[in-house]
């Protein structure tokens, strides 16, 4: 689709290391539409962060990025540093799990947001001060004019994450990528941050990609889900369909691993995620999959029509997968 905000095609990221090449992202194609709230889920090491860092040119130089990543039709793979700097913050911005490391400890919060504004817009002193207060207000920081004059250490973890969101939306990007933004926070504060993200999507119409390993968060806020395993998308569905009729054995395995009402014993996925130095041939989930057959390891399955979404499992049509008790 040409009108998507973000479009990845056969996107790859590898890291040459002493032990061989880590093939972190292995041919990922996905689209994010304007104003859409997309969740990206998967276990640690499945390539969630690397995909979006790679797309934004934020990986170490050693990383090899291939395929195509377009923002509003503009190619980012192979783009100049200058181009990437203008795209970052202006068209796409990203927030992370640990906001403290992204803030400068010796500069006032307001000044750091102003700097972000100054990099992409020419505003008068007054205009930018007013905009800073407006931004802090949007993300729900009380007494924004006073808080703007404070330093990062005077902010709690949740408040710092709000500041990061304010910086991220300062230049009205079309796409906000939030990489596990609440993982380090208490659930009560997490609920506040999720509300801020929902509000931004609603009021500013910003498309949001939320990277998380928590299916509960996915169920709460997103419209559509990409499930990743071993550097590829294995299932894509609207959030309602994903939970009603999950159709990839990995997705079902994740759901069965969760403690739920009435589930006496959890049903974990056996084994552990693959080593990305040598991902298994064919379907990378096959070594852990109860339904695997020889054919599964012959070829990497592409996403194709599943029960109610897209799924990368050659057996999805014959399998009638059930999660059993729901959350």
């Amino acid at each position: 689709m040409s009108d998507s905000v973000l479009s990845l095609r056969d996107f790859t990221v590898s890291f040459p290391t002493l032990y061989g090449t880590v093939r972190a992202v292995r041919g990922l194609s996905l689209d994010v539409n304007p104003g859409e709230f997309v969740g990206v889920v998967g276990e640690s090491g499945s390539g969630k962060s690397v995909t979006f860092l790679g797309m934004m040119g934020l990986l170490p130089k050693s990383a090899i990025v291939g395929g195509s990543a377009k923002i509003n039709g503009e190619e980012l793979v192979g783009a100049s540093n200058r181009k990437m700097r203008s795209v970052r913050g202006q068209k796409i911005s990203m927030i992370f799990q640990d906001p403290l490391s992204a803030l400068n400890p010796v500069h006032r919060i307001g000044a750091q947001i102003e700097e972000m504004l100054g990099a992409h817009q020419s505003l008068s002193r007054q205009e930018s001060e007013r905009r800073v207060i407006e931004l802090l207000d949007i993300v729900g920081i009380p007494q924004p004019d006073q808080r703007a004059r404070q330093f990062p250490h005077e902010f709690s973890g949740g408040m710092r994450q709000r500041v990061m969101i304010a910086m991220a939306i300062a230049n009205n990007p079309e796409l906000l990528i939030a990489d596990e933004p609440t993982t380090a926070l208490d659930v009560t504060v997490q609920a506040q941050i999720l509300e801020v993200l929902e509000r931004i999507r609603q009021e500013l119409d910003t498309a949001i990609v939320l990277i998380t390993h928590d299916l509960g968060i996915v169920a709460r806020v997103v419209d559509r889900v990409e499930v990743m395993y071993a550097g590829r998308a294995v299932e894509r569905a609207t959030v309602a369909n994903l939970f009603d009729t999950p159709s990839h054995p990995y997705t079902v395995g994740l759901m069965r691993s969760l403690p739920a009402l009435g589930r006496e014993r959890l049903e974990p996925i056996p084994g552990s995620p693959p080593n990305m130095l040598e991902p298994p041939p064919g379907c990378a989930f096959a070594p852990r999959c109860a339904h695997a057959q020889a054919a599964c390891s012959a070829e990497i399955p592409d996403l194709r029509e599943g029960r109610s979404g897209l799924t990368a499992c050659i057996r999805s049509h014959e399998l009638q997968l059930e999660v059993g008790t729901r959350g």
Partner: peptide, 27 residues
């Protein structure tokens, strides 16, 4: 009560139907 209502439940129907009390501020 507030702590429990803040916990995301992996079920979109439950989540959308839920009335939540979001505690303001930090500990």
């Amino acid at each position: 009560h507030a702590l429990l209502s803040a916990v995301p439940v992996p079920d979109p129907e439950v989540e959308r139907a839920r009335q939540r009390i979001v505690l303001t501020g930090d500990v």
